[in-house]
Amino acid sequence: MITPMKPFLIVSVTIVLFLTGCSKVIDIKIEEEDLKIVLSGLICPDSTVIVHISRSSQVSGDYPEDTGKLEPDSMIVDPVSLYENDRFIGELQYRIKSYYELPGFKPSPGKTYRLEASSGELKPVSATVVVPEMADLTSFDTLWIPNMVTNPTIRVSMQLSDPPDQENYYALNVLRIQRYYDGQTNRFTDSIVAYGYPAKLNGKADGELELDFLDVNRDVYLDGKLFFSDQFFDGKIFHMSFDILKNSIGRMADTVLFRVNVQQVDKSYYDYAVSYQKYFSARNNPFTEPVQVYSNVTDGYGLFSAYNCARKEFVVDWTGTQE
């Protein structure tokens, strides 16, 4: 009834072996898209407006030669214009390495700024941002933790008053400042020697449960800053505290200057940080959903956003403490 199995098996095995090597690869060329201008800039009331302008590159193009820098000296870039509440303020001037600055002008809180840039080859771009008010730190305090004998610890406590009935976004970082003395000029200069966010930040809003800022689903970190929104303390006083451990920050001088920055940031900066963190985590993982980095630049890429920074400084004298 059934034909002999041996020749059937031989043929079957041959075909299976053939199939195991049958995957083929086809090189394909992705159609080139129009290049776009990339704006990168954060403005705040403490400094002049400085923006980095470049262009995108084809994903299948050569890099780093095709790095996307616009040639500044060839005057390809048309004026980069800044508007305040739709009123023309001025044109940013080329400074160095694709950075453009509007000297002598500092943005004001509560005002809307629009940046427009164009290049003869590329589509004009624009971005709009509102400079937030300064974060309202109602209290700032430092405290030695006496029982941390082997690892001297300073506890920093702050209270942040959040404006009600609006979405507010914040960024927090801590800088360790080294002060240098220049004997020739007889001047002190400050230099940032360490920059980061607290490893563990505790937070509690009046009447709410205590938050632990280690929730990876909620917390956003970018460029050494911890970003968070007011969703858990809208309109309330937010009590924050974190510890600075002497041994966790590397070698320090006996006397150290710390600067705590609490920035109120525009929503676009927060959205950018959220998306970039997701993008960075997922970028080489084929099992994750693709992530688009947020951009508020119309017809372009990048970020033009704003923040307003409340700063507190304090000096820690580690003299007499043990390592």
């Binding site: 980095h52 470049s54 995108s56």
Partner: peptide
Amino acid sequence: LPVMTYNRNVWPTLF
């Protein structure tokens, strides 16, 4: 599919 690449150069930043 990604169609473009661009750099992050956000001023001011140490990163």
